[in-house]
Structure formats: structure tokens, C-alpha cells
Nucleic acid binder design. Structure first.
Length: 584
DNA sequence: TTAGGGTTAG
């Protein structure tokens, strides 16, 4: 007897397809399902709003028959269209995926890299055992798409099923975690990988090296490199470049050089960015000359530096005050058709300010504006500091006004530069106005906001006011620097209170803060002048272990004072002077 | 002709 095919979604009880029969044999049923599925595939591919028409087109067809959806999945190349059909079926009551169609839909979504949708299918049907291989593929897709956390979740599920993921899957997760700079995930996954007994390969090592570099642990990365090189393999360019960058930042140029040689030997491509980081690193740790040599070698080898590279090099040369060489590069880049931008202008303007050639800096500024560049906060800061440095505080203040009028927002550096310039110029009251404005703007003062005031107040013998500022500074959570404390010691000597100065010195030494030699000398001199020889001797004794010498003039002055007052001390003092000479 | 990377006080 022919099986009865149930009718769902039957709105029109009259079958409209001649080939459909309710009492057909299983073989005929399958043929019918295949035929309808084929037609439905075509409809959902070509008609945008098929949802409204499907039932009326196939009024007597049972769409809920799982064989139908399976057939669609088999015939339909586009899993997204299948998914839309699935969503439609699901919106009708009574439809549910069976294990076969679920697996099929999931697999085809994974194959199309539809990671998020595949994951939602996975999560929606926890009762079906998805193929571990597909789950591994899904982990790879998720990681590629930046969903590392979701992938970690799947590792857990595979683990609970007793499945051991392959190294390819682990590596995909490491790649995703490194891309997101989530080294916490890298290290926890790596721990799990080792627990599973999966052995790392060269690709894994590359990711682990990158993770070390992200953690500012280039040495750890180097150790890993050393270990895998024992097996005769070298990680990829990205890992090596990261290591080079890490060591450049740390100023470890013997390591950088070793890695560069390794890259050349092993035919890794050295791009302009690698060299850029090296030159930048060299300049940052003060080895500008070396950076300049690398820069010239690169040009000789046919590399064409770009604007950023030129900016870095001009910046380095300006720091050394090698302005002629900097200007040479400036002309060269322009001749090569690389116009300077606000970064490049800024470094050269700063360079001219440093060598006190403000007019040249202002000429560059005009050129920059003529070229249509709008000054930003950094540009203004550079100019304001440059003008202040050249004692042109009035112009600096005018520039500050211009800045506010142009809608460029000043930052704490702007205020600090003005405060510094004004205080150095003796205009403490005007500096105070800017300090108050800094606070009114809601900016947080830094050590540099206070230092110029403390410095000047101490120089003027107004140490008590400087001390009040120091207290205010600490109340705001700003830590006084050694220099601030040195100023206080100097100021107390100027005020004729060297004993108070000694207390400050003693506190500094207790905190392992070593003042400069001239601070000790100033204090000793002041104590000697006040005939406080015992105290002077104490300061001498605290100075010697630090490695400072007393100096001929002060030694003689001390000896003669002692000889004229208390000869018992002469022997001891001489002993100290001898020790002092030995130290030097 | 993927983008990436570079500037300011002390």
C-alpha cells in the first residue's frame, strides 16, 4: 500500500502539480521531493520575495518533510540561501532540523567561511554531534574573522568530547589571538595544547615569538627562536620582524644585527618598514649616527625612503643639531616629489628652534600654512616652546591666543611650555595665570607644570613658597622629582638655612635619590661659611660613598677652617680627603 | 598598486 504523504501548509487543498500523488511509492516520493527542491532552489535564487509565494506555488507539498530540506541543501550551492529557507521553515510551526540536515547546513556554512552564522547553528543545536573536523574548520573561520573568544569556547567543547584538535587549528587560534594582541589567550591555549600532547611546529613558534614581543619580552621570543633553530627551521618574516622591532625598542642592536643577517641568509624579504623601525629605534636611543649610516646604505642599495622614513631621519639629525644634513634630506625628499607634511614640517621647525634660528623656523611655518596645512596642537606646542626657548615669550603668548581663536585645543604641554618660558623670563605672575587656566580647563598638572615655579622661587630665595607648591603637587598625586628636591636644598642654602637643607638631603639619600655633585658642594660651602664644620663633615661623608670628589678649592677651605678652629678634626678630615681622591 | 610607520615640554 502506498504511503500517505502528509500535507502541511495546505492552504489550497487542491494539488496543483500533476506529478504529485498522495499515494505514490517511496521512489516516486523521492523523485517528487527532488523535483520540488530543484524548483524551490531556482525560485529562492531568482525571486527576492519568495517567502510570500512558496506555499501558493506548492499548495499541497509538505515542506516539513526533512527529506525536502536535505535535498535543497544537496542542490543549493549557496548556503546563505539555504539558511534563509531554513529560517522560513523554522518560522512555520512544526519544523525542526534533523541531524543530517543540521550537519549538512553547518558544514556548508563552515565551508563558505560564514563563521558567525555557523557558530549560531552550532549553538542552537547542541543536541547534534557536529563533526569535530567541521568544528575545527569553524574555529579557523572564527579566528580569521576576529572572533577568537568564540573559538576558545569551541576548543573547550572539543576537549569535553575527547577530541584533540590538529596543529592547524591551534595555529589559526594563535594567529587570531596575536592579531588581537590577546597574549593571555595565546598562553592559556598554548598550555592546553601542550596538555593535549600536540607538538608545536615552526608556525606555532612564530606566533609565540610574536606574543613574547607583544608582551615586551623580546628576549623570551629570541630564546624560542634559538630553540627552533636547533631543528634547522626559521619562523616567518612577521615573527622575525617583530623580534627586530622589539630589540630596536630595547636598544639591543647586536641582536638586531644578528637577526638581520639571519633574515638575509634565509632569504626573508626585508621591507622598508623593517628598516624604518630599525632607524627609528637607533635614533630613539641616541644612536642617530648609526641610523643615518643605515639610511644611506639603504638608499645606496636602491631602497626608496618614503615620507615617514625621511621624517624620522630628519628628526634624528635635528636632535643632534645636524641641521645642514637635515636640510639636505629635506631638499632631497622634495626633489624626489615627496612633499613634507605636518610631521616633517614639525621636526624641522623644532630643529631650527633648537639651534636658536627662530626666523628660519617661522619661515617654514609660513611655507607650511601657504601649502594649506592647518596647524594642530603639536605644531603650536613646538612653536610656543621654540619661541619661549628663545626668550620670545610675548610672541609665544600671542600664538597661544591665535591657537584658541582658531579652535585648536591647547593641552598640558602647551601650558607647561608657556609656564616654563614665562618663569624663566621672571614673569611668575603671568605663569601663574596659565597654571590656573590649566586647572580651569580640567587638565591634570604634571611635574613640569610645577617645576618652573619651584625652580624660580628657590632661586629668588622664596623657598617657603616653593615648599607650599611642593605640598600642593603631592596633594594632587604628582611625585616631586630629584630636581625639585635639589632646588629646595639650594633654596634653603640661599635662605641661610643649610641645616634644613641637610635634612632634605638626608631624606633624599634615604630614598636612594642621588642629587648632583653641585648640590652637595653648595650645601658644604654654605655650612662652612656659617662655621658649621661638624655638619659640613657629615655632608662630606655622605658624598664620598656616592662617588663624588670634594674638589681642591673646597678641600682647602675646609682644612683651613678646621685648622683655625678645632685641630682634632684635621686628621680625620685629611683621611676623608685622601679617600675622596682615591675614589676619583 | 592593502596598510602599516613618523611630530611637541623637561
Amino acid at each position: 500500500m502506498a504511503k500517505q504523504v502528509s500535507f502541511i501548509f495546505r492552504q489550497n487543498p487542491k494539488p496543483c502539480f500533476r506529478h504529485f500523488s498522495t499515494n505514490s511509492e517511496p521512489q516516486q516520493q523521492q523523485q517528487l521531493i527532488t523535483k520540488v527542491a530543484g524548483e524551490v532552489c531556482e525560485i529562492i535564487r531568482t525571486r527576492p520575495r519568495w517567502e510570500n509565494t512558496l506555499i501558493s506555488l506548492f499548495p499541497s507539498f509538505n515542506f516539513l518533510d526533512t527529506r525536502f530540506f536535505n535535498e535543497v541543501l544537496r542542490l543549493q550551492n549557496n548556503p546563505f540561501l539555504s539558511l534563509r529557507l531554513f529560517n522560513w521553515l523554522e518560522s512555520q510551526s512544526g519544523f525542526s532540523l534533523d541531524p543530517i540536515s543540521c550537519k549538512s547546513l553547518f558544514t556548508s556554512l563552515v565551508e563558505c567561511n560564514a563563521s558567525v552564522v555557523a557558530k549560531s547553528i552550532y549553538d542552537s543545536f547542541p543536541q547534534f554531534n557536529h563533526e569535530p573536523d567541521s568544528v575545527e574548520s569553524l574555529i579557523c573561520c572564527l579566528c580569521n574573522d576576529g572572533f577568537v573568544n568564540e573559538a576558545v569556547d569551541l576548543f573547550e567543547k572539543l576537549k569535553s568530547l575527547g577530541h584533540r584538535p590538529s596543529i592547524v587549528t591551534w595555529n589559526a587560534a594563535f594567529a587570531g589571538a596575536v592579531r588581537d594582541k590577546r597574549t593571555d589567550i595565546v598562553w592559556s591555549l598554548y598550555g592546553e595544547m601542550m596538555d593535549c600532547g600536540v607538538v608545536l611546529n615552526v608556525e606555532t613558534a612564530g606566533y609565540l615569538i610574536q606574543a613574547c614581543c607583544i608582551d615586551n619580552n623580546a628576549e623570551g621570543g629570541y630564546e624560542l627562536l634559538r630553540q627552533i633553530r636547533k631543528d634547522g627551521v626559521v619562523p616567518d618574516t612577521v615573527a622575525l620582524k617583530r623580534l627586530i622591532s622589539g630589540f630596536s625598542m630595547d636598544g639591543k642592536y647586536d641582536r638586531v644585527s644578528e637577526l638581520l643577517h639571519l633574515m638575509v641568509e634565509t632569504n626573508h624579504h626585508l621591507d622598508i618598514f623593517t628598516y624604518q623601525e630599525i632607524i627609528h629605534g637607533l635614533c630613539k636611543c641616541g644612536r642617530v649616527g648609526e641610523g643615518y649610516r643605515v639610511f644611506n646604505e639603504l638608499k645606496a642599495r636602491g631602497y626608496a625612503p618614503d615620507r615617514v622614513m625621511y621624517t624620522i631621519m630628519i628628526h634624528g639629525l635635528c636632535q643632534l643639531k645636524w641641521i645642514e644634513k637635515a636640510r639636505g634630506l629635506w631638499v632631497e625628499m622634495k626633489e624626489k616629489g615627496i612633499p613634507p607634511n605636518e610631521y616633517t614640517y614639525n621636526v624641522l621647525i623644532r630643529g631650527y628652534c633648537r639651534i636658536y634660528e627662530v626666523e628660519e623656523a617661522l619661515k617654514l611655518l609660513k611655507e607650511m600654512c601657504d601649502r594649506g596645512y592647518r596647524l594642530n596642537t603639536v605644531n603650536y606646542n613646538t612653536l610656543i616652546a621654540g619661541l619661549c626657548m628663545n626668550r620670545r615669550t610675548k610672541e609665544a603668548c600671542d600664538l597661544f591666543e591665535e591657537m584658541s581663536q582658531s579652535g585648536v585645543v591647547p593641552d598640558v604641554i602647551t601650558y607647561n611650555s608657556l609656564i616654563r618660558g614665562l618663569c624663566k623670563d621672571g614673569q611668575l605672575a603671568k605663569g601663574q595665570v596659565f597654571f590656573e587656566e590649566l586647572l580651569a580647563q580640567g587638565l591634570t598638572p604634571t611635574n613640569s607644570s610645577y617645576t618652573p615655579f619651584i625652580e624660580q622661587l628657590c632661586r629668588l630665595g622664596r623657598t617657603q613658597q616653593a615648599l607650599e607648591l611642593l605640598t600642593d603637587m603631592m596633594n594632587r598625586g604628582v611625585e616631586p622629582s630629584i630636581y625639585n628636591r635639589e632646588c629646595i636644598v639650594d633654596g634653603l642654602c640661599k635662605e641661610g638655612s643649610p641645616i634644613d637643607g641637610m635634612r632634605w638631603l638626608s631624606e633624599m639619600l634615604d630614598r636612594k635619590l642621588i642629587p648632583r655633585r653641585k648640590v652637595f658642594l653648595g650645601l658644604i660651602k654654605c655650612l662652612v661659611q656659617q662655621d658649621k664644620l661638624e655638619s659640613a663633615l657629615i655632608v662630606v661623608n655622605s658624598m664620598l660613598p656616592v662617588g663624588y670628589m670634594l674638589g681642591k678649592f673646597l678641600s682647602r677651605s675646609l682644612v683651613s677652617k678646621f685648622c683655625s678652629t678645632n685641630s682634632n678634626h684635621v686628621e680625620m678630615l685629611l683621611q676623608d680627603i685622601i679617600s675622596s681622591s682615591q675614589v676619583s
